[in-house]
Design a protein around this nucleic acid. Structure first.
Lengths: 216, 216
DNA sequence: CCATCTCCTTAACACTGTTAAATGCCTGCG
DNA sequence: CGCAGGCATTTAACAGTGTTAAGGAGATGG
């Protein structure tokens, strides 16, 4: 009866393939023709499943988020501090998992409402810890925006973990900045160990929330 | 002698025109041909002054930064808290001054080293206030990344101050989110008053820096 | 068996960033 | 004065982009 022979192409597979391809070619190289070729299909075929390229990108961002959530284990008895740290460390890791991940992600909008379940969960945890809803929103979004900004910048310097973009040799930079000793020395703190810097920033944020909202 | 009749086109004027055009057409509409037309010139003429489009965008970002610095009056006796607040409020205002401002800005790199003078100034002020250099860098970059992430998101919802993008009607959103009461209610705190939210986040950050580094 | 719906292909369009070559205009030199 | 040569631009063209229109193969349902 309803067993129409499986179509050559389906939405989920297209999104998966596009995400895989993204790591090889980057956002600039991620053309519809390239994606189509990977799927053994002609480019306009994608328009049967997506109304335009942006809708495919939106689906990609949503899938990135889905995988991030799936990869996070939050202990049921986690404090709000642990929760915030895990959520943002996980978000950063998820974005770093794809070349131009942060750009793709923050240039897109989630499809559906699936993403709201984790958001609801986080908000509830914060409210139960004693936050007012507005405070919880502020605490979570502040860290969220910070993480997006951080990784965007990070991937501008290091497109994929390991290979650094030209113009970012630390020594070369220091030489160029010779007139500005503090700014030159800051390069080390900035471009050396992104992970350590990121975590320190999160600690700063946690400390601020504790202090300002009086909840530890 | 050296008064060669001024060429039709010069770098600074091209950048100014491109920045003005950006507000009319957005980043997608900002094509070399459109910029050239505005300058009464053919598109390839731009390649005499810029090696490619990215270099023009870099110059635009640098000019945005220049104007931001010019528009900021930092009192000589400002505390580090005031300094951080002024710097980031000013950055946000500068980015909001252009459609897709945050995207253009964080997709580009500064040309030259001019930007380093303000950075040096800020770092020195923090060090003089008692911070170690690493702490100063962390405090300033954390807020910097936050602001970039915040405005990127803000301009995703409100391309230009005033006109809101479709799909972001607060009531419609609340209805769609009916299963997630906290997330639905969070919409108000998120999409209502961006400026108030931004300032509260900065206060959170300032409080965190005070608490963790013990400097008030 | 024919009509219909689903899913994909082929062909084409307008437009993009970018390069190559040709063309004036201005300067400095003989 | 004439002419070489660089500066700054134009014209023409190219490969490649997202997207649309039209058509066709293949299964489904009446």
């Amino acid at each position: 009866m309803a067993t129409r022979r499986s179509p050559k192409l389906d939405k989920k597979q297209a999104v998966d393939t596009a995400l895989r391809l993204l790591n090889d070619v980057g956002l600039d190289g991620l053309t519809l023709r390239a994606i189509a070729k990977e799927l053994d299909v002609q480019a306009p075929a994608l328009y049967w499943h997506f109304k335009n390229k942006q809708e495919l990108l939106d689906e990609m961002a949503t899938e990135m988020y889905r995988r991030m959530v799936a990869g996070q284990r939050i202990p049921p008895d986690a404090t709000w501090q642990e929760r915030l740290t895990i959520a943002n460390t996980g978000l950063r890791a998820a974005l770093l998992g794809y070349r131009d991940g942060a750009k793709v992600y923050s240039g897109s909008r989630f499809t559906g409402t699936e993403h709201a379940v984790r958001m609801e969960e986080n908000l509830r945890a914060f409210v139960e810890a004693g936050f007012e809803l507005g405070q919880a929103v502020r605490a979570l979004t502040t860290s969220y925006f910070f993480t997006l900004g951080f990784v965007t910048e990070e991937q501008g310097v290091e497109p994929l973990p390991g290979d650094r973009r030209e113009g970012y040799d630390p020594d070369e930079r220091a030489a160029r900045m010779a007139e500005f000793p503090l700014a030159a020395a800051a390069g080390a703190a900035l471009f050396q160990d992104f992970s350590a810097g990121f975590e320190e920033s999160l600690r700063l944020l946690v400390a601020g929330i504790e202090a300002r909202y009086g909840i530890s």
